[in-house]
Computed example of a mutant assay.
Amino acid sequence: MLISIFLQALALACLSLAMDKHYKAVVHGALATRRKVALRILGWISLLLSFGLLVAQQPLLGIAVVDWLAWLSCNILLVALLLCWKASRDSVTH
């Protein structure tokens, strides 16, 4: 289950960094098209893999889906807070 949670966080970080606005705020550079596509593919594959791992561990599908969605919302909050913190920290130092 822990691997699934970390894969979700990785997926959400990749999917958010695949957006120009978030990429510029974190990396301070332009996002190349190939990198954008690679981040999106890695993000979606990680998200699907995290779902598959959690469903494989939980015998009841309904519980697994609710559990996965609960962790997804927690990871969305975590990634959003980390992106905001990184952007605000960099704006203070620059």
Rank of each mutant, 00 (worst) to 15 (best):
residue 31 L to P: 08
residue 64 A to R: 09
residue 76 I to R: 06
residue 41 I to Q: 03
residue 39 L to E: 03
residue 13 A to G: 13
residue 85 W to G: 07
residue 26 V to W: 09
residue 23 Y to L: 00
residue 46 S to F: 02
residue 55 V to M: 10
residue 55 V to E: 07
residue 84 C to S: 12
residue 43 G to F: 04
residue 24 K to I: 04
residue 7 L to F: 09
residue 35 R to W: 10
residue 33 T to F: 14
residue 20 D to N: 09
residue 62 G to S: 05
residue 57 Q to R: 13
residue 53 L to R: 06
residue 14 C to H: 04
residue 29 G to P: 06
residue 48 L to Y: 10
residue 19 M to Q: 14
residue 9 A to K: 07
residue 77 L to N: 07
residue 35 R to N: 10
residue 63 I to M: 05
residue 71 W to D: 01
residue 79 V to P: 15
residue 57 Q to M: 11
residue 68 W to C: 00
residue 2 L to A: 08
residue 53 L to G: 04
residue 78 L to N: 03
residue 8 Q to F: 00
residue 69 L to I: 14
residue 53 L to F: 04
residue 53 L to W: 04
residue 62 G to Y: 05
residue 13 A to Q: 02
residue 39 L to G: 08
residue 75 N to Q: 10
residue 29 G to V: 06
residue 39 L to M: 00
residue 92 V to M: 13
residue 87 A to V: 00
residue 8 Q to H: 08
residue 23 Y to S: 02
residue 37 V to K: 10
residue 80 A to E: 09
residue 8 Q to S: 03
residue 52 G to N: 05
residue 61 L to S: 08
residue 88 S to G: 04
residue 24 K to Y: 07
residue 7 L to K: 04
residue 73 S to V: 15
residue 51 F to I: 08
residue 10 L to Y: 15
residue 9 A to V: 08
residue 66 V to S: 08
residue 38 A to W: 01
residue 32 A to V: 08
residue 27 V to A: 04
residue 73 S to D: 01
residue 55 V to N: 05
residue 28 H to R: 13
residue 4 S to Y: 10
residue 23 Y to V: 01
residue 91 S to L: 07
residue 54 L to T: 11
residue 60 L to R: 13
residue 57 Q to F: 12
residue 12 L to N: 00
residue 3 I to W: 10
residue 84 C to K: 14
residue 32 A to I: 01
residue 55 V to Q: 11
residue 60 L to I: 06
residue 37 V to P: 03
residue 9 A to L: 10
residue 67 D to G: 01
residue 51 F to N: 07
residue 78 L to Y: 12
residue 18 A to C: 06
residue 73 S to T: 15
residue 66 V to F: 14
residue 22 H to C: 09
residue 70 A to W: 14
residue 94 H to W: 11
residue 53 L to P: 12
residue 14 C to W: 05
residue 33 T to E: 09
residue 25 A to I: 01
residue 62 G to M: 06
residue 12 L to M: 15
residue 80 A to I: 09
residue 45 I to S: 12
residue 83 L to R: 08
